[in-house]
């Protein structure tokens, strides 16, 4: 049988999927063990023991200086920025994307600008944001907005334009005005697609968040990682990275399930 026709069963598929994780863990464990055997104070590849101790210290004990549980404070601060940034960007994407997708006049007017903006490397304008909005929360949120909104705007506009022309004609023969075409045909059909766009934008959003926090912040997951780098505190950095990854996966899955729940017609192939 050809290789392209050989499909794994359910159990085999799960095993194959888990395998790379196990291999990575094993390699890390062995390397860490070896280094720690040579030097018990080695900081580069901390063992499970050091990492759990670090997590315990960061998440479950009050910080001696501030009295806060740092990991939770960091998480909350970061998630707030991420949520604000992505939320604002999604809302802007919806408004501009719908207008661009439905109205040819607006499209002629705005689409070139949106395309140009989406090409600007967001990190290159981070200094401008710091100068204009100061070093506070606003500049960090703005970076996420500027980094993710233009691409989502283009995506939403594209999705609207992909709706069959037949539908657009049909709703007009039912007497719809332009506003109703937007609210009753384009908007409801583009919402699930917007959620998909948000899911794809979360990767870049995390990138911009951590970059902004690394440069100017007083708390946040990105801030902490870059802070403890000075002490080579891999025992903090590694759990933080894993924690960020877990958060990202959870958010992504929540969005996926929300999409399924809210738009049954979309996920059952009704589009």
């Amino acid at each position: 049988m050809r290789l392209i026709n050989r499909t794994p069963g359910r159990l085999t598929a799960t095993a194959l999927g888990v395998l790379p994780f196990l291999i990575l863990l094993l390699i890390y464990g062995l390397a860490s063990q070896q280094r720690l055997a040579e030097n018990p104070n080695d900081k580069l590849l901390p063992g499970l023991e050091q990492m759990t101790a670090a997590v315990d210290r960061m998440a479950f004990q009050e910080d001696r200086r501030s009295g806060d549980y740092l990991m939770w404070v960091d998480s909350l601060a970061s998630l707030e920025r991420l949520g604000m940034g992505v939320g604002v960007a999604a809302l802007m994407a919806l408004v501009v994307g719908l207008a661009n997708g439905v109205l040819p006049l607006v499209r002629a007017n705005l689409a070139p600008l949106v395309s140009a903006l989406s090409m600007v490397p967001p990190l290159a304008i981070l200094p401008i944001l710091f100068i204009v909005f100061g070093l506070g929360e606003l500049s960090k949120v703005m970076l996420i907005v500027i980094g993710t909104a233009p691409i989502m705007m283009r995506d939403v506009a594209q999705r609207v334009r992909e709706l069959p022309t037949e539908q657009l004609i049909k709703i007009q023969t039912l007497g719809a005005n332009s506003w109703q075409v937007v609210t009753r045909m384009a908007l409801p059909q583009v919402l699930p697609r917007l959620i998909d766009a948000v899911r794809l934008s979360l990767g870049p959003a995390w990138l911009f968040l951590i970059a902004a926090e690394a440069i100017a912040s007083t708390e946040g997951l990105g801030y902490r990682i870059f802070l403890v780098r000075r002490y080579l505190a891999m025992d903090v950095i590694l759990p933080y990275v894993i924690w960020i990854t877990v958060l990202a996966i959870v958010i992504d899955q929540c969005l996926r399930l929300t999409n399924r729940k809210l738009f049954p017609w979309y996920n059952a192939g009704g589009h």
């Binding site: 037949e166 039912l174 009704g270």
Partner: peptide, 19 residues
């Protein structure tokens, strides 16, 4: 010069709203 409610249409496909 544009479709209106006096003229109904049924296409071969995509005439109904999936949502």
């Amino acid at each position: 010069a544009e479709p209106d409610r006096n003229r109904g249409i049924v296409f071969q496909r995509y005439s109904v709203f999936p949502h």
